[in-house]
Amino acid sequence: MAAPKDGRVNLLGLDRSALEDFFERELGEKRYRAHQVMKWMYHRHVTDFGGMTDLGKALRGKLEERCEVRPPAVVFDKPSADGTHKWLLGMDAGNAIETVFIPDKGRGTLCVSSQVGCGLNCQFCSTATQGFNRNLSAAEVIGQVFVAARHLGNVPHRERKLTNVVMMGMGEPLLNFENVVTAMSLMRDDLGFGLAGKRVTLSTAGLVPMIDALAARADVALAVSLHAPNDELRTRLVPLNKKHPIAELMAACLRYLRSTKIDSITFEYTLMRGVNDQPEHARELAALMRQFCRQAQDAHAAKVNLIPFNPFPGTRFERSGEAEIRAFQKQLLDAGVLTMVRRTRGDDIDAACGQLKGQVMDRTRRQAEFRRRLEGGADAAA
């Protein structure tokens, strides 16, 4: 992990093993001292070593000289009328990322970003229009959870508690594999945030080799951004499909299911009017899900999460109507496919799925290209 310019190491982002090694090899301290510091950081949200009162004065001095606990800076935080909460967190060089907390019936889900922007160019995603700058460090990934947990810990009576984390914010998590795996380890560690494996979910557009790598490293829930039931349509919506087509992706999901303790795979499907919401699409999707469940020898091995498209300025896509969404769901349910419709949350603060944009100094110049298309469309309309 890169150290800041002053040479101090940010202890956020070092998992338990790495922190133990750091204390032993770099500080000449007992390994259990790392456990004490983790409790102060992740359980009590203390960032000042002087406040870690069960550490000796000499150790606190070493830590203050050589280390820091530095979560991302909050540029602004914005609550929604429905209880959703979005943070804009400052990165370097004018970049910023967005993190969203969604409370719902006894659970609280945090949507965490893995990259500044995204390089995959999925056609219906607002983040894709921002282009890509860089991967987040492990400290920047887990720092989002730290910021949210610290905020929620100050809520009276803890009426909004962080119970779930989804790597479903800005970026493709599997393209930032090592840092994301390290951060997820801290999410699950009892000395970190103590979340069960089924309560930590990684969402991917379908990088097949990295799904296999994830199965060997992290026993977490998997969500796959499918969005189409056939290769022709999916390649148009998710260009990555040209490299990893649906059959290859489903085989990887089957391997993941068989090699982890996870009971099922969630397939995300964003419904767009006239694009992928027709009865024939539902029939194709149902057949695909049934085939997967037969191969897994488990009728509940696949779950479909239908997501109403969340419009953003300049997009050519439209949200499917409520009648079309419910009819699509009914076709899947009638075919025996477990299917849920995700409620749209945080619309008033642009915090809904697919809307996260942040602030990206785009190395791919995709923002400029998107603006030119947008302005061209406006000129044509005029």
Results as ranks from 00 to 15, higher is better:
Q329Y: 11
I349D: 06
L11D: 00
K39D: 03
Q295K: 13
A213C: 07
T315D: 00
D82Y: 04
K62W: 00
E29M: 07
D190R: 12
R319K: 09
A18F: 02
A215D: 09
G153K: 02
T270W: 12
D190K: 13
T270K: 08
L356F: 07
A93I: 09
F292D: 04
S17T: 11
S264R: 15
A183G: 02
N121S: 12
R107A: 07
H151F: 05
E29A: 10
G51V: 01
Q297P: 00
A247F: 10
A221C: 09
K30G: 09
H281Q: 14
N154V: 08
Q123W: 12
V116L: 04
Q144D: 07
V100D: 07
L285I: 11
F328Y: 06
K39F: 05
E26Q: 12
A296L: 04
A301R: 04
T182I: 04
M41Y: 00
P279K: 13
L222F: 10
M210K: 15
E324I: 08
T84M: 06
R234V: 07
D212Q: 12
L226N: 06
A149L: 07
V116E: 08
H45E: 00
R319T: 11
D277T: 01
E29N: 07
R33C: 08
M272H: 05
L226C: 09
C111N: 01
A18E: 06
W40G: 04
M272G: 05
S185N: 14
L214F: 03
R258Y: 12
T266R: 01
V141E: 02
T47I: 08
A58W: 11
